[in-house]
């Protein structure tokens, strides 16, 4: 915990406090940290352990069980390629393969420049427009292998700018 900044400690303490009236709020706490910080590193888990009395091994077990929780920071743009059944039977695998090839990372990995994280999603409920790709919440319907480069370029152009 040593290298958590005082403000991070304060913020996480506040998050834990937010749910103090809930019964067994661990999932809620972790979801809030994940969405506010983008990841839940070990030292944050240690702090949550201290604040809640839940053993850190148990917290770590929960964090690594659910695919929404991440131990490492994700890229600026999270490219989620849906591999639900509807998308898969319509070629979702070839879409993710193409992203993987063009970004040079495997699903679950982040590009060295920190711009993109490629991830395989299990159905985002957009089956009607399969195969679907979701980038930071924006859904690209009816993707094709040919459109992949174009989509990547769109975000490369935006680059690291906020």
């Amino acid at each position: 915990m040593a290298h958590l900044s005082a403000s991070a400690v304060k913020q996480i303490t506040e998050i834990v406090k937010r749910y103090e009236n809930e019964r067994t709020p661990l999932m809620m706490i972790l979801s809030a940290i994940q969405s506010e910080y983008g990841y839940i590193p070990l030292d944050v888990q240690e702090l949550v352990s201290d604040l809640t009395g839940i053993p850190v091994a148990e917290i770590y077990g929960v964090v690594t069980f659910y695919s929404f929780f991440s131990l490492n920071p994700k890229g600026k743009y999270v490219v989620g390629v849906c591999l639900g059944t509807a998308c898969y039977v319509k070629g979702g695998q070839s879409i993710i393969d193409k992203f993987s090839e063009l970004l040079g990372v495997k699903p679950g990995e982040t590009t060295p420049d920190g711009l993109f994280t490629l991830s395989a999603l299990r159905c985002i409920g957009a089956c009607s427009i399969a195969p679907a790709v979701s980038i930071n919440g924006k859904v690209y319907p009816k993707m094709t292998v040919g459109k992949v480069q174009e989509v990547i370029d769109e975000y490369r152009k935006l680059g690291g700018a906020n």
């Binding site: 070990l42 888990q45 240690e46 053993p55 850190v56 091994a57 148990e58 917290i59 770590y60 077990g61 690594t64 069980f65």
Partner: peptide, 25 residues
């Protein structure tokens, strides 16, 4: 570990075929 000491050093990590029992991280 929990029954004897209440500290729970060991826990299940990851899931499915990759599951292991280990101290945190």
């Amino acid at each position: 570990c929990v029954a004897a000491h209440g500290i729970g050093i060991l826990g299940f990590e990851k899931r499915g075929f990759n599951t292991i029992v280990a101290p945190a991280a």
